[in-house]
């Protein structure tokens, strides 16, 4: 088949260049020379960067989360909120949220895609970690956590356990040993969807959520 030959020809030409392998660069040194902050400072930086990027940041505690989240949902009149298995597993939280909105489970393959486009007001997800340097929330998308919840509905609400706030993406990857394998999809989210494609003028709500609501859950 022409496939194998194209592959072999390309690799053959690259090998023919007989390039000497260079030593493996180590990014650790670069990141080691940078300032490391304690958790409280990292969380402040995270919150500040997110707010500067037009995300709406709410600070709460785990005991107050159900009430705080209910308030946000009610204030914004979000009547249908899509959730994955990870949120559904938080029985107590879901029970309370059901008093203020309808929770739509997204668990079956491709079943809710049309509804997400048409009827859902918000997607609610957990986060895997957060990054202070860039003000990013990291989503670990697998069977527990669908990808479209943070993308298709006009509002994305994400719960962040602030103890999982890292200095940098590098620190996160390194400490959690990402090199040994990743899930289907990992996404870093740092603001509502935006574009500057028309005359360099910034506009929000390009294709993804127009609002990003981050619930920082801190327990002292």
């Amino acid at each position: 088949m022409s496939q194998t030959t194209a592959r072999d020809k390309i690799l053959g030409r690259l090998r023919a260049a007989d390039c000497k392998p260079l030593p493996l660069p180590d990014a650790t040194d670069f990141y080691a020379q940078r300032r490391h902050e304690d958790l409280a400072t990292r969380v402040e930086r995270l919150a500040l960067n997110l707010s500067n990027a037009m995300a709406e940041v709410h600070r709460t505690t785990s005991s107050e989360l159900p009430a705080a989240l209910s308030r946000v949902i009610r204030d914004k009149s979000l009547s249908t909120v899509a959730v994955g298995r990870d949120v559904l597993a938080r029985q107590a939280l879901c029970d309370q949220l059901q008093n203020v909105c309808a929770l739509m489970p997204v668990t079956t393959a491709h079943a809710e895609t049309a509804a997400l486009f048409d009827r859902v007001d918000a997607g609610l997800t957990l986060s895997y970690a957060a990054i202070a340097e860039t003000g990013s929330v990291v989503l670990w998308c697998d069977s527990q956590s669908p990808r479209l919840l943070s993308l298709v509905p006009p509002v994305h609400i994400v719960l962040v356990d602030v103890r999982r706030t890292f200095d940098t993406l590098f620190a996160l990857m390194h400490q959690e040993n990402w090199g040994s394998g990743l899930p289907t999809n990992v996404v870093m989210v740092s603001s509502p969807s935006k574009t500057a494609d028309i005359q360099q003028t910034l506009a929000y709500g390009a294709h993804g959520p127009k609002q990003l609501i981050v619930m920082l859950v801190e327990d002292h």
């Binding site: 960067n49 340097e133 860039t134 003000g135 990013s136 993406l169 394998g181 990743l182 899930p183 289907t184 999809n185 990992v186 996404v187 870093m188 989210v189 740092s190 603001s191 509502p192 969807s193 935006k194 993804g208």
Partner: peptide, 10 residues
């Protein structure tokens, strides 16, 4: 400092 989305597909 970073784009809105960094998408890693595996």
């Amino acid at each position: 400092a970073v784009t809105t989305y960094v998408n890693m597909i595996s």
